[in-house]
Structure formats: C-alpha cells, structure tokens
Design a protein around this nucleic acid. Sequence first.
DNA 1: CTGAATTTTCAAAACTTATTGAAAGAATGT
DNA 2: ACATTCTTTCAATAAGTTTTGAAAATTCAG
Lengths: 168, 168
Amino acid sequence: MKLADAKKQFIASWGAFGTHWGINRTMAQIHALLLVSADPLSQDDLMLELSISRGNANMNIRELIDWGLVDRVIIPGERKEYFSAEKDIWKVATQIVKERKKRELNPMMKLLDQLEDVDGDKKDKHVKQFTDTVTSIKRFGTQADKMLDVLVKADENWFVGSLMKFFK
Amino acid sequence: MKLADAKKQFIASWGAFGTHWGINRTMAQIHALLLVSADPLSQDDLMLELSISRGNANMNIRELIDWGLVDRVIIPGERKEYFSAEKDIWKVATQIVKERKKRELNPMMKLLDQLEDVDGDKKDKHVKQFTDTVTSIKRFGTQADKMLDVLVKADENWFVGSLMKFFK
DNA sequence: CTGAATTTTCAAAACTTATTGAAAGAATGT
DNA sequence: ACATTCTTTCAATAAGTTTTGAAAATTCAG
C-alpha cells in the first residue's frame, strides 16, 4: 500500500475510533495526522490535508492541547504556530485516562456520595435496592479510581513488567 | 433526599455518563432504572417512568440485552415480558469491557496489521514515522488486549486482591 | 382458527452536535 | 503607528443521531 493511502486510512479509522473514546471525529483526525507526521504541522497544513475549515481546525487543535495530547511548537524564523503530537503511545493513553478520570469519574463519585443517604426505612426493599446499588457502584468506582491513579503515575516499564507476571 | 428524587438524579446522571461510554442516553437511563429497581420491570413500566415512546424503549432494551447487561425475565402467569439488570457492578464492568474490546479494539488491531507494511524506502523519514507510529500503537494495543482478556476472565476477588498489593 | 395482547419495525420529525466562514482581535516586523 | 499575517470567536447552517408513533408482525389463549 502506498504511504498516502495508508495515511488516509489511518486518519479515517483513528477518527472513527476517537468518537468512542470521548474525542470527536475531527479532533481525532487531527491527532492521527500529527501522530504520523515526522515534522510539526501548521494550522493551514491541517486544514489542507483534512479539508476542514479554519474555525474547525482552530477549535479542535486547542481542545487537543487542552487534553495534553498536542503541543504548540515554535519554529524559529516562522510567524505561524506549528503543532506536534506526543508520539509515545503509553503517554497518550495515560494522558487520556487522566483527563477522563477528571472529567467523568470524579464528578460521578461526588454525585454518588450525595445519593447514598436517602430518607426512609432501610428495610423497605425499594430503598434497600437503591442504596445497595449506589454503594456498590461507589465501591467499584473508588477502586477503579485508585487503580487508574497508579496507572497514570507508573512508568510503562515498571507497570507492564509487574503486570505481565500475572497476565501471561 | 427522597427516594423518588434520588432515583431521578441517578437516572439522569447515569444517562449522561453512559454517553461517554459507548452507550446512548436512553439506553443508559433504562439500565439505571433497572439497576435500582428491586423487581423486574415491563416495557410499559419503563416507558411510563422514563417518559419515552414504545419504539424507543423497545430498541434500547434490545440493545441492552445485546450488550449482555439486561435479561428478559418471564413472570409466570403474565403475558408481558419483564426485564432486569445484572446488579453485580464488577460483572457489568467486565461485560462492557468485553463488548467494547470486540467492537472497537479488535477491528482497529486488524486494520493496523494491514497498514504496517507500506511501500517505499524505510529510510525516508515520512515512511519511517508512519510505520513507527503504527507499530507502536499495535504493540500497545496487543498488550491492552491481553490485559483486558485477563481482567474479563478474572473473578473480582482474585483480581482486586492481587492488584491491591501494587495499588495501595 | 380468531382476535386481543404484545412486540417489532421504520419513515418522518425532533433534537443534538459539529462545521463553516466571515468578521473581530492579537501579535509582529518595519 | 501601521500594515500584514496569523489566531480566535460565534451565529448561521449542515450533518448526524435519537425519538416518535402508527402500522405490521408475532404470540398466545380460548
């Protein structure tokens, strides 16, 4: 397969993939293109290669920077801003985990705390089912939270090395 | 807080949460309601409590069954079908992991296999960056795949017990 | 069988989210 | 301070997704 075609396929698939992972299609496509580009690209490069508008490019680049997946790069002597993606996939993954934990898991945990004590007879089976469910989700969430924290802080070699003893 | 209000909040939040996890809002709301209900509910119960149409209820219930998160329950002497959700959150989580692995990770891995060998000079930095990226995503994906397999097959106590030695 | 109860389907409508592009705002070199 | 280049904003629009509801299909008891 030719490089240009392979790139196109990769970008299209990474884009579709991204929509399942809390990142929108265009954002994921920009990310994909930067991942496979040897050099940093400018906003105009991205607009051209992906056929997207200036506003769209701008918004999604900024969101990628917000997620910590893309960096602004200054090229001396150039007026334009350039962008490059973190290429270490382990870092990409932990960064995504970190962000989603902050954006999704933490708020949910906070809500569950509030829902844990409802009024009414703890013996009533409806009350009981509700609090049991909330409590068990909370327990699960707390554990997931801890695990993900360690994951995010761990460096790849330590982590994978340790786990592979279990996961053979 | 009153039970009815707490339920409403829980359903609304679980619905919003679900959209980030590959499940649509209504599907997640139905799931939430079943999770906190002591007894199985009929399609009409769900329509009434969540104010959704028959078609919507039907489609989403079937999709939840498809995901393995909800079961049909036959109540003797009743003509209607009833539905109940798996209440063990660990099982819910592993079920979701299993499905998403099948729906997302596996197809992506298959694609990457194809993209790994592009034509052209391996010394060309553009070709090199592309294949390096694809290869490293593949390596990462393969490892994630293995880990998730073990996770899905593990029973909760074994898994959490073992890992908590690391993750304290 | 027949007919009532229940479930499923699907085209149209409503809603949600993403994208455009032109205009306003900053930054930079002279 | 001005002109130029580049970046950001945002209201309008387009695209995509979900929901509805009525009609068709299925199930089941008598």
